[in-house]
């Protein structure tokens, strides 16, 4: 079985598992909805500035992503992982997890956007730029969090460790995303938007490349 076929099978497995254990995905969805509602309730004067809207959006996304991804190495026990690694290429395992998490987070970010638009109000004017930001953000978050989750799953108290290890690393991505999204709300006219996109793509690619290089040292126990 070649590498890509393995990835395909693993992706199908992830999807089937996710749908079969419906509580995990619906838990995340409920998490997003209630956080958006808390934001709405806490800012009782309304979220009027696009800057604030964008910042809140990405903070909600950040915590939702951590919660969505932390389970990607936890839900399967060590024995089953050993079985995968015996049967398949370890790289296919991490690549499939990354691809799955990218699509999950992209879906999640669309949902957060919809919830924000419905409850707080929509501030985005340039849809294509914001969609691009969502995609690049989901990609960056999921690559980073998947890799760090792989490290922290080897330790015992791994959800704290995931936050400690990944939050400092996520800041450059988050800052660029917020800048890009503020441009998408039409509040700032920024001619340097291409540079921001370039930086995000570069960070995503570097992180993805490092994951592929370093994962072979990580999975073995």
């Amino acid at each position: 079985m070649n590498f890509f076929a393995q990835i395909g099978i693993l992706l199908r497995k992830e999807l089937v598992l996710e749908l079969r254990m419906g509580y995990a995905i619906s838990g995340i969805l409920l998490y997003v909805l209630s956080t958006v509602f808390i934001v709405y309730a806490a800012f009782f004067q309304g979220v009027n500035s696009p800057m604030l809207w964008v910042t809140l959006f990405w903070i909600i996304m950040l915590f939702a992503s951590v919660n969505a991804i932390v389970k990607s190495f936890v839900q399967e026990n060590g024995a089953r992982q050993l079985y995968y690694y015996g049967l398949l290429d370890p790289l296919a395992v991490i690549v499939s997890k990354m691809i799955y998490n990218i699509s999950l987070l992209f879906f999640l970010s669309l949902l957060t956007w919809a919830a924000m638009a419905f409850i707080v109000g929509n501030k985005v004017e340039e849809f294509s730029a914001f969609l691009l930001a969502l995609f690049l953000g989901s990609a960056g978050f999921s690559i980073l969090f998947t890799f760090v989750a792989a490290i922290s799953s080897k330790a015992d108290n791994n959800s704290t460790l995931l936050a400690i290890l990944s939050f400092p690393l996520v800041i450059p991505i988050l800052m660029t995303l917020i800048k890009l999204s503020v441009v998408a709300t039409g509040m700032l006219e920024d001619t340097g938007i291409g540079k921001d996109i370039g930086i995000l793509v570069a960070i995503d690619l570097v992180l993805a490349g490092l994951t592929l290089v370093l994962y072979p040292f990580l999975w073995r126990d």
Partner: peptide, 22 residues
């Protein structure tokens, strides 16, 4: 040793945009 070495490499790569690009 193994996991901290992996994290160290990963963190240094993430540090470069932090200190030189942003």
């Amino acid at each position: 040793a193994r996991l901290s070495a992996v994290y160290n490499i990963f963190a240094f790569a993430a540090l470069i945009p932090l200190l030189f690009v942003i």
